[in-house]
Amino acid sequence: MAKGQDERPADQDGRLTTEDAVRAMLLTMPRLVSRAKRTPVPEQLRRLRLAPRHLSLLSCLLFDGPTPVKDLAARLEVAPTTVSLMVSDLQREGVVQRRQDPGDGRRSIVSLSEDPATREAVDAWLASSAKAWHKVLDGLSPEERATFVHVIQGYEEELAGTS
């Protein structure tokens, strides 16, 4: 079906009933996931067989810069050992670097590779999604953006609690 054909319109005030909103989201989410899965992985990264969790880790490093393993674990909501394993995989392939924190020798700081081609490949992989999110979220007020993010995070939490 073409976009919009399978969704009921909002009422005259632009409001949806909960039932209509649930219906719209149940129809939209599979398409969104399908499109995200079809986002082509740049040639340089294809051989790595990256999972969505790697994409999340790389997103954090791209947006936040060098980050301690413990902080990455907190952002990704996984154990530090899980992050260490992912970082080891990516480090072996030259996608990320791990170095000792000069201020605290017990901490590791992870960053994207300094290789410009690798950084460009990671950026290219994330760019289309980031551009789409910017376009959609720029049209919302700060309060609407906060509500949207809260709703998506709540949805993910509910799914995690029911599995």
Rank of each mutant, 00 (worst) to 15 (best):
T17N: 04
E19S: 12
A21F: 11
V22P: 02
M25F: 11
L26A: 08
L27N: 09
L27P: 01
T28Y: 08
T28C: 03
M29C: 12
P30I: 06
P30K: 12
R31V: 04
R31N: 05
L32I: 09
R35Y: 11
A36N: 10
A36L: 15
K37D: 07
K37P: 00
K37H: 09
T39M: 14
T39L: 14
P40L: 13
V41R: 09
V41I: 15
P42Q: 13
E43F: 05
Q44R: 15
L45K: 01
R46Y: 01
R46F: 02
L48V: 09
L48D: 08
R49S: 10
L50V: 13
A51L: 15
A51Y: 10
P52S: 02
P52R: 05
R53E: 08
H54V: 02
H54I: 02
S56E: 09
L57N: 00
L61M: 03
L62P: 00
L62V: 01
D64I: 03
D64P: 00
G65H: 07
P66L: 03
P66I: 04
P66D: 13
P68Y: 08
K70S: 07
D71Q: 09
D71P: 00
L72S: 00
A73K: 08
R75Y: 02
R75N: 04
R75M: 07
R75H: 06
L76S: 06
L76W: 06
V78N: 09
V78E: 11
A79G: 08
P80Q: 12
T81R: 14
T81S: 15
T81F: 07
T82F: 03
T82G: 01
V87S: 03
V87T: 11
S88R: 15
S88G: 06
S88W: 13
L90D: 06
L90W: 01
Q91F: 01
R92T: 02
E93D: 11
E93V: 00
G94T: 07
V96M: 03
Q97C: 06
R98Q: 10
Q100P: 01
Q100Y: 00
Q100F: 05
Q100A: 08
D101C: 04
D101E: 11
D101Y: 00
G103D: 05
D104P: 03
G105K: 11
R106W: 03
R107D: 02
R107M: 12
S108G: 13
V110E: 11
V110P: 00
V110Y: 10
S111E: 15
S111A: 15
S111Y: 06
S113P: 04
S113E: 13
E114R: 15
P116M: 11
P116L: 09
A117N: 10
T118F: 02
T118A: 06
R119M: 05
A121Q: 06
A121N: 08
V122G: 03
V122L: 07
V122R: 05
D123F: 04
D123I: 01
A124C: 03
W125N: 01
A127S: 12
S128R: 13
S129Q: 15
S129F: 10
K131R: 14
A132I: 14
A132W: 10
W133M: 12
W133V: 13
W133D: 07
H134M: 04
H134R: 11
K135D: 14
L137M: 14
L137A: 14
L137I: 13
D138H: 14
D138L: 12
